[in-house]
Amino acid sequence: MKREKVNFIKSSIVPLPISNIDTDQIIPARFLKATDRNGFGDNLFRDWRFDENNNPENNFPLNNPKYKGTILLAGENFGCGSSREHAAWALFDYGFRVVIAPSFADIFKENALNNGLLPIELSQELCNSILNETKQDPSTELEINLENQSVRVIVSGEQEYFKINAYKKSCLQNGLDDLDYLIQLRPDIEQFEKAQKKEVIATNEI
């Protein structure tokens, strides 16, 4: 799949300062019946965004016209629970390109990185600070530089560096995915299989 290249991102923030947001909240299971990747953004945070009669919940930050932007700011352990990649698709499809949180669940982080959605872990202190500044002034913007692995709050100048897997970083910067690489690695994989003599490899023929 061809991807957008990720490098610099400058945007205001949508704050959702809740801990342990699980992927069932990001995209409830009843919306996982599709066989393609499109349109999941409509049901992003469905049961928090809309009431039982499908009316928008006005208190929910995504429904608050004050908050706009491609950066979601969330609480710790974002994306826990189900491995559904639909969660990353829904966030991306809705328009987010970055999620910032003090920590992420492992599978969500990988799914995000595989879809050009940048998960950035910042200290709880800086997350709190960004949250407060955004609440006071929703036009507060962040500047994200993937090459330098830095996040800077533009007005206050606060800055922090984040970690990212070097291989994934290069995939994001070049708009590549793992699939092409692994397909061209097939001869090496066959060699590996022979070398291991299928020692631990089961087959259905047993």
Binding site: E110, N111, R186
Partner: peptide, 22 residues
């Protein structure tokens, strides 16, 4: 361990995955 759909595609295509050691 559980994986996302992009990784399911990787395994279907190559019986391998690119992963980080926990």
């Amino acid at each position: 361990f559980g994986i996302g759909t992009s990784q399911v595609a990787q395994v279907l295509a190559s019986q391998c995955m690119i992963v980080t050691k926990p």
